[in-house]
Measured scan of single mutants.
Amino acid sequence: CETCDRYISGRVLEAGGKHYHPTCARCVRCHQMFTEGEEMYLTGSEVWHPICKQAAR
Rank of each mutant, 00 (worst) to 15 (best):
K18Q: 06
G44S: 12
P22M: 08
E36M: 05
T35Q: 10
R57G: 11
G44P: 07
V28C: 09
G37V: 09
G17D: 09
Q54E: 15
I8F: 03
V12W: 05
R29N: 07
A56R: 05
G37K: 15
G44K: 09
T23V: 05
Q32S: 08
C4H: 00
R29S: 14
Y7W: 03
C24H: 04
A15T: 15
C1E: 15
H21M: 00
D5R: 12
H21S: 00
C24K: 03
E14I: 12
P50I: 08
S45M: 12
E38G: 12
C27T: 05
T43C: 06
C27N: 02
R29M: 06
C4D: 01
Y41P: 05
V12A: 14
E14M: 10
Y7P: 14
F34Q: 04
K53W: 03
I8W: 00
V28H: 13
E14Q: 09
K53L: 08
A25L: 11
R11A: 09
P50T: 13
V47G: 03
L42G: 14
T23R: 09
W48H: 13
L13C: 09
K18Y: 00
M33K: 14
T3R: 05
Y7C: 03
T3A: 03
V28E: 07
S9L: 07
R26H: 09
T23M: 12
R6H: 05
F34A: 08
I8E: 04
M40C: 09
Y20R: 04
E36Y: 15
A55M: 10
H19K: 11
T23Q: 09
H21G: 00
S45D: 12
R6K: 15
E14C: 07
E14R: 07
H31T: 11
C27E: 01
T35C: 08
P22Y: 12
E2R: 05
G37M: 05
Q54D: 12
R57C: 09
S45R: 06
F34E: 03
D5P: 00
L42R: 09
P22G: 02
R6L: 05
Y41D: 15
C52L: 01
E36V: 07
E39S: 07
Y7I: 15
P22L: 11
K53E: 12
G16A: 03
Y20N: 04
E39A: 07
P22Q: 05
P22E: 06
E36C: 08
C52E: 02
M33T: 15
L13P: 02
H21I: 00
T3E: 09
C24N: 02
K53G: 09
G17E: 12
Q54M: 11
H21T: 01
H19E: 03
V12N: 14
A55V: 10
R57S: 03
H49W: 00
A15Q: 15
W48G: 07
G17N: 11
H31S: 13
V12E: 12
L13Q: 04
H49P: 02
Q54A: 11
E2A: 10
Y41N: 11
M40H: 14
D5W: 04
E36K: 05
V47S: 07
T3Y: 09
E2P: 01
Y7V: 14
M40Q: 14
A15N: 05
G10V: 02
G37F: 05
R11M: 05
A55F: 09
V47A: 08
K53Y: 09
H21Y: 01
P50S: 11
L13I: 13
K18R: 05
H21N: 03
G16Y: 05
K53C: 09
G16E: 06
C24E: 03
C24V: 00
C1K: 13
E14T: 10
A55T: 11
Y20G: 04
P50Q: 12
G10L: 00
I51Q: 12
D5F: 05
G37E: 12
H19C: 14
K18M: 06
E2K: 14
G44I: 04
T35H: 05
T3C: 07
E2T: 13
C1G: 02
R6P: 00
R29V: 07
A15E: 04
G16M: 10
L42M: 09
I51E: 12
E36G: 13
E39M: 03
Y7Q: 13
V47C: 08
S45W: 05
E36L: 06
I8S: 01
T3P: 00
V47H: 06
Q54L: 09
Q32R: 12
E46D: 07
I51C: 04
A15D: 06
W48L: 13
G44E: 12
T35N: 08
E36P: 06
P50L: 11
I51N: 14
Y41G: 11
V12C: 08
E38M: 03
H21R: 00
C24S: 02
A56F: 13
V12D: 08
E14S: 12
Y7D: 13
E46G: 10
R11T: 11
L42A: 13
S9M: 04
E38H: 06
S9N: 11
E38S: 07
C30D: 02
W48S: 13
S45H: 03
V28D: 08
Y7N: 14
T23K: 08
V12K: 14
G10H: 02
H31N: 07
H31W: 08
E2Y: 15
C24I: 01
Y41R: 14
E38T: 06
Q54V: 08
T43Q: 09
R6T: 05
R29Q: 11
R57T: 14
C27H: 01
Y7S: 10
M40D: 03
C30N: 02
A55R: 08
T43V: 11
E39P: 14
Y20Q: 02
R29C: 13
E36N: 08
T23L: 05
P50A: 11
A56L: 10
G17W: 01
Q32A: 12
R6Y: 07
A55L: 09
C30V: 01
H21C: 11
G16W: 03
T43I: 07
C24L: 01
A25D: 04
T3F: 15
H19S: 12
T43G: 11
E38V: 05
V47R: 07
R11E: 14
C24R: 02
G10E: 07
V47W: 14
